[in-house]
Amino acid sequence: MRGVAKLHRKMKRSKLAGNIETAILYLILIAVSILFVIPFLWLLFGSFKEGSELFRAPFRWLPDRIQFDNYKQMFTAIPFLKYLKNTLIIVFFNIVGSTVSSSFVAYGFARLHWPLRNKIFMIVLATMVLPFQVTMIPLFIMYTNWGWIGTFLPLTVTCFFGNPFFIFLFRQFFVGLPKELTYAARVDGANEFRIYSTIIMPLAKPCITTVAIFAFMRTWNDFIGPLVFLADDDLYTLSLAAQLLRSNLDPRWHILLALGVVMVMPVLIVFFLMQKYFIQGVAMSGIKE
């Protein structure tokens, strides 16, 4: 009986302590998340400020008035629609190429048995963390010899050969599907390609969504790829255009900030609509079982 009373007292004390603890933890989280969100607010407010307002000292948070001139100028001062179209072309090919090729390859690693399978899969995983700089120069020379520099080809063709991270995601998903699913089809004599396309892929919609989102993100945000492989202004992507604006003699920051908001928005919207897929995809990358 004495033991129980002691435990009871202890729990009471720990409840009070727990409340203080909770409050402190909330405070820390709120403080840190404010610091994380401030740059977004600054970008948003800044995009409404006039050019001269940006440079005014001392710094003021809010714009003098809400005006959309910066956004309007974005269409006239730079060929925004052209850059957007270029970016979307590359994004489109990357989404299609990545989802189709990576799921196809992943099926071979997940649902079929063959010797050396796990060893080869290790190579796939290893290339996942291979720095781009390692292959950048030989690729540049190779594409130069093929006449590909200054075209979209280096940024679109490679995604049709499977991306290691996406192969990994698909494979993890395929491995998780029960064997029985495909057993009946096999007994009926369906071949593997048919099983892949009619049974597995329709089930893989969540995984396809995740991969499509990641392919979109990577391409939309990519900077070094377009920087190294594209040449003239006609093919520039939004990222490259933003850097061009910045490095100009006359940077026109107010337009650049509006462009920044326009570039961040679609990503944030996709994220808010499909948060689950994002979090899953990122979390998966760290799961090693």
Partner: peptide, 18 residues
Amino acid sequence: VTDSAGINNGKLLAAIAG
């Protein structure tokens, strides 16, 4: 083409060699 018509970023070299 930025960077001095591709001189300072390798694009002119690539075009010539390609």
